[in-house]
Nucleic acid binder design. Structure first.
Lengths: 185, 185
DNA sequence: AAAAACATGTAAGCTGTTACATGATTGG
DNA sequence: CCAATCATGTAACAGCTTACATGTTTTT
């Protein structure tokens, strides 16, 4: 029943712009979204499943071409599913295991400008990132001082990557807060 | 035929210390290696496959307990497979899609102190990270200036994360170079 | 003695990969 | 017209998740 990560990615793209399976594959190949598979064996079945769930609807283009070209767009239920996903709380597990998916959610919020959800998302994200960094720091302290230095260095790499994400989240939050005060003028 | 990512992770852990399936699951649950699944349905079949490939060998402990406890350790072929993996060149694709796996490789190099491979690994890693950051920068420049700012911010998040990795790799490299000169004294 | 945790596994089902198939359109 | 590329898929298979099964040791 539930919608997979790939399904939500497809739903988000289709909400921005209706597209065919081939269009979507090209997007996955050519943009930073390349982390999702562009293989036909993944995308076409995922589209069919979304259609069966009533989250997207396909319309066939007959104009000017013999070969039909099927263009998909989200149904109202699909849009609601997408909004629900974007509004999910940010958990520690999301931060630890699905950071990419969180960034994807953030990117898709661009198409729902009404909500102030972007700011609360970034606040929650910053809070969970800070908490997870503390966890990692504690794991680091528990490690032997070596040699070899590799285990400590590997954990330090993770910590620094998460710190970079935290700095980014705080900067992005300031950016949106600034925009808001400007708009109030 | 080929060995999966999980298989290599298991092989690396068993090279450090022979262990049973349950031991390995606990490691995956309790350490920064938690990104790999700790589900029995993943680990036990993976161990059996490694055994069938002749990369690990299981020995049954009968002492003091009715229920046998099967402890695995790598065979010579398994150790060679592990070494081959650690010695693989670092590619752009590794950096873009399998950064976690690269970090795992780095961590396992702790158990092969003979090789100076750690340093060449870090040099290659830094080079590929720098190249990939350039790619992302170009993708960023190709994006519209918005609003909404989300797409650009998302790409910037990726860039900053990769920059953090690059700084780490350079620092780690200096660390090993320093150790080497100290040892030469 | 009962409950909890230890330890090892299996089965069903889903997702994604790789490789292939098929016809349509476009460029030389 | 032939080749390449566009566009849409299918089939076989591998791997993982979830849920369950089973017996053992330890704790209460």
């Amino acid at each position: 029943m539930s919608t997979t990560s790939l399904g939500l990615a497809l739903l988000g793209l289709l909400h921005k712009r209706p597209a065919s399976g081939y269009d979507l594959r090209k997007i996955f190949q050519s943009t930073p979204m390349a982390h999702y598979s562009s293989s036909p064996g993944a995308i076409y079945p995922a589209l069919r499943k979304l259609e069966q769930q009533g989250l997207i609807a396909g319309a066939v283009d007959h104009r000017q071409t013999l070969r039909p070209r099927k263009t998909f767009r989200p149904t109202r239920r699909g849009t609601r599913t997408l909004e629900d996903w974007l509004a999910q709380p940010v958990t520690r597990d999301d931060v630890a295991f699905r950071l990419d998916e969180l960034l994807l959610r953030f990117a898709f919020m661009a198409n729902f400008p009404a909500a102030e959800s972007t700011q609360s998302f970034l606040r929650d994200l910053a809070r969970e990132l800070a908490g997870y960094i503390d966890d990692l720091q504690r794991q680091l302290e528990a490690l032997p001082l070596g040699p070899p230095p590799h285990p400590r260095l590997a954990v330090e790499c993770g910590i620094e990557s998460y710190r970079a994400h935290l700095r980014w989240a705080r900067r992005a939050l300031r950016h949106f807060e600034l925009i808001e005060t400007q708009r109030d003028d």
